[in-house]
Computed example of a mutant assay.
Amino acid sequence: MPNLTVLSTTAVPDHVRGALTRWMIEPTPGLYVGTLSARVRDELWRVVSGSIGDGAAVLVHPEANEQGFTVQTAGERRRIPVDLDGLTLIAFRPDECQEMANRG
């Protein structure tokens, strides 16, 4: 059954952007939204995560858990998802947390 899928990208190759726009709309640059089957979603994510290079991507889609969704990431990002007793929270990288603490 198709489900709403959101994919955010940063600095991905043009061919990846082209592949994504075949299946999803791009309401703002780098943000893709679509109603996809799990099979299509997983295949698109395989393509995106396999050719991320210096870029980054975040995939959010429905999942049977307490939050009702799951978060997957590829590439280097400032924020990272962390599982805390079954809930996905977003944390800053430890080195950036230390920099922020030193500033404050």
Score class of each variant (00 low, 15 high):
Ser51Met: 03
Ala11Lys: 14
Pro94Val: 09
Leu36Glu: 06
Thr88Glu: 07
Ala64Cys: 05
Arg93Ser: 13
Thr73Val: 15
Gly34Lys: 08
Val6Arg: 01
Asp14Cys: 05
Val82Tyr: 07
Ala57Arg: 10
Glu76Ala: 14
Tyr32Gly: 00
Met100Ala: 15
Arg79Pro: 01
Pro62Phe: 09
Asn102Glu: 14
Met24Glu: 01
Leu87Ser: 08
Val47Gln: 11
Gly55Glu: 01
Ile52Leu: 02
Asn65Thr: 10
Ala19Met: 08
Thr5Pro: 00
His15Ala: 05
Thr5Ala: 13
Asp83Leu: 15
Glu66His: 08
Arg39Ala: 09
Leu31His: 01
Gly34Met: 11
Ala38Met: 07
Ala11Leu: 14
Leu59Trp: 05
Glu99Trp: 00
Val58Arg: 12
Ile52Asp: 01
Arg79Glu: 06
Leu4Trp: 06
Ala74Leu: 11
Glu26Asn: 11
Arg46Thr: 13
Ala91Gln: 14
Leu44Gln: 08
Arg17Cys: 02
Pro94Ile: 08
Thr10Cys: 05
Arg41Asp: 10
Arg46Cys: 03
Thr10Phe: 14
Thr9Ile: 02
Asn3Tyr: 04
Leu31Met: 13
Phe92Glu: 10
Thr70Val: 14
Thr70Ala: 15
Ser49Cys: 00
Ser8Thr: 09
Val6Lys: 00
Met1Gly: 11
Ile25Gln: 06
Asp54Glu: 05
Arg103Glu: 13
Met24Asp: 00
Thr21Gly: 01
Leu87Gln: 10
Ala57Ile: 03
Met100His: 10
Asp83Glu: 14
Leu59His: 04
Leu36His: 04
Thr10Glu: 13
Arg103Val: 14
Ala64Asp: 14
Leu7Val: 06
Val6Trp: 00
Ala19Gly: 10
Gly86Ala: 09
Ala11Trp: 14
Pro2Met: 08
Leu87Met: 10
Gly50Pro: 11
His61Cys: 13
Gly55Lys: 00
Val71His: 02
Arg93Tyr: 07
Phe69Arg: 10
Gln67Asp: 12
Gly53Asn: 13
Arg103Pro: 00
Leu4Gly: 07
Glu99Cys: 00
Arg93Glu: 15
Asp95Cys: 02
Val82Trp: 08
Pro94Met: 09
Tyr32Ser: 02
